[in-house]
Amino acid sequence: MRRPKKPCPITEAGIRFVDYKDDRLLARFISDYGKILPSRLSGVDARHQRQLAKAVKKARFLALLPYVKGQQG
């Protein structure tokens, strides 16, 4: 049995293009270790997942998000 498709949380928030400066939004789509969550877990559609991946990488460079979470130093 196929599970009914989850709606994309980013589309639902009315976001056209993911903003790398919105660290509170991006933080919802990274794992406890700081990795980008796969869309099969987060339900993000493919277009937004591509934008999200780039946005997370920009946010990491700007020290808005950690590269690796949950370790000292």
Binding site: A13, G14, I15, R16, F17, V18, D19, D22, F61, A63
Partner: peptide
């Protein structure tokens, strides 16, 4: 640190 990026699209929600 600094980052210069081209604005190709309006970001975020309108």
């Amino acid at each position: 640190r600094y980052m210069v990026s081209l604005i190709e699209r309006v970001l975020g929600a309108p």
